[in-house]
Amino acid sequence: MATVKIKYRNKEYEVNAGMTVRDAIRKVGLEPETVLAVMNGQLVTDDTIIREGMEIKLVAVVSGGALPSPSGRGAGGEGEHYEM
């Protein structure tokens, strides 16, 4: 069975051709909600069938630092504005 390479950050995975992007994302251990797939430079939906010869790059969508609070019990973020 033909395999296709999937790149995510600095890693490379191989999956079988013929499956959907969504299944491939799960196959490599990622949550479909946390990435977008770019195929041959184009953003694609996750029902796209992976075919031999395609180049797939997964782009992470999750970002964010800590949202600490002085008490350690709550997360203030912008709501913590008066703690200056």
């Binding site: 949550e31 909600e33 999750v62 970002s63 964010g64 630092g65 800590a66 949202l67 997360a75």
Partner: peptide, 21 residues
């Protein structure tokens, strides 16, 4: 950000994204 690794925000986002899936 190199300091974001292991942050609480990312931890909660992971859980929420599993629910969203």
């Amino acid at each position: 950000c190199p300091h974001a690794e292991g942050s609480t925000t990312i931890y909660y986002k992971e859980i929420l994204n599993r629910m969203e899936g």
